[in-house]
Amino acid sequence: MTKKFWVHSAHDSVGVAVEDLSAGEALTGAYMDTGGEVRIQSSAAIPLGHKIALRDVKKGDKVLEYGEVIGAATQDIRAGEHVHTHNVKSLRWG
């Protein structure tokens, strides 16, 4: 099956779409560090290069990519949702 998103690290809470994704797609992605497969259903349209939540993240919790913190959730995020500036915010320069 074509892999439509990549995940930098096994610890990550988000994957990155490598093509445009539609809402409600059953997706297969790949972990870059282990090569293992990961499956998720999208709940929103997600453009190429944008992030999809791999698991639920509670408001205020840290969002992980590259196995590192990229910011905190500004609202509850459900697995399969689009993750971007509307629901994650930098923890720097504030």
Binding site: V69, I70, G71, S90
Partner: peptide, 9 residues
């Protein structure tokens, strides 16, 4: 626009 959300990312 390209999907980057924060300076950390």
């Amino acid at each position: 626009k390209g999907g980057l959300s924060t300076i950390e990312e």
